[in-house]
């Protein structure tokens, strides 16, 4: 499974509570829709660090990096060897 699919699967199973987001697309906004909030970001970063064996620094936790599945995947991709 590629990065995008992994991230999408986690968000859909762990963070999405509203059924209207069941079919999450790569470019769907995650912040303005409230899918990722202040509590969800802690779980998401813990998942990303564990799943991809990367370290996400505090200064990287900004809207530009977590706005969509695509931007999250790009952040992880940059960190992989």
């Amino acid at each position: 499974m590629d990065i995008k699919e992994n991230v999408k699967k986690f968000i859909q199973s762990e963070l999405v509570t509203d059924r209207k987001f069941a079919d999450l697309q790569d470019k769907d906004p995650l912040i303005s829709t409230g899918i990722i909030d202040s509590l969800g970001i802690m779980r998401l970063t813990a998942f990303l660090e564990k799943s991809f064996a990367v370290r996400i620094h505090d200064e990287e936790i900004i809207a530009e990096n977590f706005g969509t599945v695509e931007s999250i995947s790009a952040l992880i991709q940059k960190k992989l060897p």
């Binding site: 202040s38 505090d58 200064e59 936790i61 900004i62």
Partner: peptide, 13 residues
């Protein structure tokens, strides 16, 4: 302190 929009992470840390 830090970057714009980075305050929540600074606060959490």
């Amino acid at each position: 302190l830090g970057k714009e929009g980075n305050g929540a992470s600074i606060f959490n840390d």
